[in-house]
Amino acid sequence: MLLLNCPYCNLSCEETEFLAGGQAHIKRQSIDSSDQEFESYLFARKNPKGVHIERWQHLYGCGKWFHVARSTVTLEIFGSYSAQTLSPPKKIRANINKKLPEWHWENSK
């Protein structure tokens, strides 16, 4: 049972208040994309044994979507941040690198 921090409410709440939304920072592909790009957009999800940057919604709270950096192996949470960003903020990345120096946002794209 995860504990997640909603960056809008600034509250740490039980997982049951939230809805998981899968991989974050997916760039929408549309009309001008190739079949391959469109397929990747819809289905090719990162499935790392390690840091996963993912979307969550504070469904039974403020209703806001936000992003979380979480390990899929230890379930450690490295931080949550606004969904209205194109990449994880520096602070989150630094937090991850404290534990996992090898990890780079660019590599994990």
Binding site: Q57, W65, A83
Partner: peptide
């Protein structure tokens, strides 16, 4: 409703 929120908040903010 949830879908609309998701698009608004994560794609067309």
């Amino acid at each position: 409703y949830s879908m609309m929120e998701e698009w608004l908040q994560t794609e067309w903010w």
